[in-house]
Design a protein around this nucleic acid. Structure first.
Length: 81
DNA sequence: GTTGAGCGT
């Protein structure tokens, strides 16, 4: 399942996100979106979890949870197009 | 600061 993680603090790194998500299951990939020019985080990321049941649990547990001082959004990602 | 990059793999 592909997930969208939003409202992240700019100091969160991909490795941080992976650690958090792995509390709920296997994480296939983590993609923190960073501005190509400034190298600054855009504050959102995409995480792929092979096991949908684990992904859904992560969404339930982490959506709205405060992380690095911000209530993060965790939900299924929109199709990329 | 809220739905993806790359610049040719």
């Amino acid at each position: 399942m592909n997930m969208y993680i939003g409202n992240l603090s700019y100091n969160v790194r991909e490795a941080d996100l992976r650690e958090v998500m792995e509390e709920y299951g296997t994480v296939e990939s983590v993609k923190l979106i960073v501005d190509r020019d400034t190298r600054r985080s855009k504050g959102f990321a995409f995480i792929e979890m092979p096991e949908t049941s684990e992904a859904k649990r992560a969404i339930e547990e982490l959506n709205g949870a405060t992380y690095e001082g911000r209530p993060m959004v965790v939900k299924e990602a929109l199709p990329r197009n």
